[in-house]
């Protein structure tokens, strides 16, 4: 279980997060929603240690991650699929996966599992990452993250700019991860997608988590979407 407790963070002297708390449980999809600039991506970066915490704490299964060096955070079981994919563009598909497998024990089996999940990648193993289509790049970004065999998967707008068939595929994979008992933390702008797959939604505004609600309640009371997102 991933637990964020009143975290504060930002970029240099610019504080972006003032008080964000959330709990992501195994086998659940937790969605962070908010307007542009609310601090959704910053929250994911702070979890990964890519931005330093100036207050609060991040804990996984009761172990405080806040004091770990950033490169030890993924080893503790958190994988991150960033917005815009950020693949190692000059490396091949196989090499991108290999980077994901660097700290995984059962490399061959994990690689096969990932390639079974995204068969398209198997056909593109020797292709340079930046020559893939947008959908294939997203598959690779997710596959690379899953190579870590994480307990928690952080996804930042995974369906951004993708065609509908690819969005369905990504949604199916996210649901599979949920069924495999991963805790998924999702930043997503598409409300329909969130209402369909998420278990709980955390609304973030001006760097503060204001409310956590389960999606069932949100479907019954969509007023909150109007209130927090203006839609």
């Amino acid at each position: 279980m991933l637990e964020l407790s009143h975290i504060q963070s930002g970029y240099g002297r610019v504080q972006v997060l003032f008080d964000v708390s959330l709990t992501a449980k195994e086998g659940e999809i937790t969605c962070i929603m908010g307007r542009n600039g609310a601090g959704k991506t910053t929250t994911l970066k702070a979890i990964m240690g890519m931005l330093p915490l100036s207050g609060g704490s991040v804990a996984l299964d009761g172990v405080n991650l806040s004091d770990l060096p950033p490169h030890d955070v993924p080893k503790s079981g958190i994988a991150y699929v960033p917005q815009g994919r950020r693949l190692f563009s000059e490396l091949t598909v196989a090499q991108n996966l290999e980077v994901g497998l660097l700290h995984t024990k059962d490399k061959a089996a994990t690689r096969e599992e990932v390639l079974d999940l995204f068969p398209r990648l198997r056909e593109r193993l020797k292709q340079q990452a930046d020559t893939l289509s947008g959908g294939e790049q997203q598959m690779l970004a997710m596959g690379r993250a899953l190579c870590l065999r994480p307990k928690v998967l952080l996804l930042d707008e995974p369906t951004e700019g993708l065609q509908p068939s690819m969005i369905d595929l990504i949604r199916d994979v996210v649901l599979q991860m949920k069924s495999r008992n991963l805790a998924v933390v999702l930043v997503e702008q598409r409300i329909d997608a969130v209402l369909n797959i998420a278990d709980q939604v955390v609304f973030v505004e001006n760097g503060r988590s204001l409310e956590t609600t389960d999606t069932g309640a949100l479907r019954e009371n969509p007023e909150k979407l109007h209130h927090y997102l203006g839609v």
């Binding site: 990964m48 890519m50 955070v73 960033p82 190692f88 980077v99």
Partner: peptide, 14 residues
Amino acid sequence: RATQQDSDMAQAFG
């Protein structure tokens, strides 16, 4: 090479 191309993401993979 991974570090050269994106040091933040390299760090995110340990």
